[in-house]
């Protein structure tokens, strides 16, 4: 057990390095020069240099050395005073738009995203499991056909269309909910209702089909046949035997969704003016706010990676078969 846990943690190291490498190369070599995007066209070289210095882009890309620092006329602060290690060690410059440290900004926005996305996630998961169970119960009969057909229809409508429609029909047209906005503390519940409703409606389809397949896979296993032969009733079999075993793939699926919870839906938060991480990212895209984009891509990916690792370890506690394979 301990050996497995150690091996799994060690496996994460090259992946984290890979994430670091991909995001860093993407933003330092492929993306446009942030000094230009901040300053706009027609800036003088001295101003560009000042902006680069402020963003820490005057430093060498990978590693610093005393000779290099003297050549550039910088103060030498050790080998790791480079752009790459600024990212590694989470030394991001301030956000261009907010003039606040990126870490602080993310920490402040994350709970807002979570407040909207967690209810969406829980309601959605509950509904998806119930609908999938209905399908598996009535396989091939009309409730199954109606639900699977509806799920496919729902998946084919663009996410943005559902948000726009929900916002203008339920929020603007019927006036049941506020169209957009946010408030502090508990007062924000008022603003949360519509985004949650729309978010659930938009994401329902895909999961239903997935969980239906998972449940049907489970229905044709030997232990179910044995239980049926022993005389366990259909309902009892479905609700206790099958549902319990289905939770393993459900947990896997759930973990892959977690980073999106934190990130919020980019579209949802932007459309409903929710001040969460998704909205922050969209804003950063429009403002060319490189520190935020880099920090979010890097930070959320690492968080996701760690979550995947923890799930795998949690599995071995639940299901010893995983360890063997």
């Amino acid at each position: 057990m301990l050996a497995y846990v150690i091996r799994r943690i060690l496996m994460t190291v090259p992946i984290v390095l890979g994430i670091l490498l991909i995001t860093f190369v993407l933003f330092s070599y492929v993306a446009p020069d942030p000094a230009f995007t901040v300053a706009g066209r027609g800036k003088k070289p001295a101003q560009l240099r000042a902006i680069r210095k402020e963003m820490g882009l005057d430093k060498p890309v990978w590693l610093d050395s005393r000779a290099k620092a003297e050549q550039d006329g910088r103060e030498y602060k050790g080998h790791f005073n480079s752009q790459f290690f600024d990212v590694v060690l989470w030394r991001f410059p301030e956000s261009i738009k907010y003039h606040q440290p990126v870490g602080e900004l993310i920490a402040r926005k994350a709970p807002v995203s979570l407040a909207v996305q967690l209810p969406i996630f829980l309601i959605e998961l509950g509904l998806q499991l119930i609908l999938a169970l209905i399908c598996a119960f009535n396989r091939g009969r009309w409730p199954d056909l109606v639900v699977t057909f509806g799920a496919v229809l729902g998946m084919c409508v663009p996410y943005l269309s559902i948000i726009i429609l929900g916002q203008s029909v339920l929020g603007f047209g019927a006036g049941i909910f506020p169209v957009a906005g946010w408030d502090t503390g508990l007062k924000s519940v008022h603003f949360m209702a519509l985004p949650i409703l729309v978010g659930v409606a938009a994401g329902l389809g895909g999961g239903v089909r997935f969980y239906r397949t998972v449940m049907l896979d489970e229905v044709y296993t030997d232990y179910v046949r044995t239980a049926r032969a022993k005389g366990v009733s259909r309902n009892n079999m479905m609700l206790t035997h099958v549902l319990r075993n289905v939770f393993i793939p459900v947990v896997t699926q759930t973990v892959t969704v977690l980073p999106y919870l934190l990130l919020g839906s980019l579209l949802l938060e932007r459309m409903f003016q929710i001040p969460g991480l998704g909205g922050l990212m969209v804003e950063a895209l429009f403002n060319n706010d490189r520190p935020i984009l880099l920090a979010m891509t890097y930070g959320i990916s690492i968080a996701y990676c760690v979550m995947l690792m923890l799930t795998d370890i949690a599995y071995t506690l639940v299901d010893p078969r995983v360890r063997l394979s």
């Binding site: 992946i15 890979g18 994430i19 991909i22 995001t23 993407l26 933003f27 492929v30 980073p259 999106y260 990130l263 980019l266 990212m281 895209l285 984009l293 979010m296 891509t297 959320i300 990916s301 996701y304 990676c305 995947l308």
Partner: peptide, 12 residues
């Protein structure tokens, strides 16, 4: 696969 798809796609 360890970078959420939408993040990577948008960043690229």
């Amino acid at each position: 696969n360890s970078i959420p798809w939408i993040l990577l796609m948008v960043a690229l």
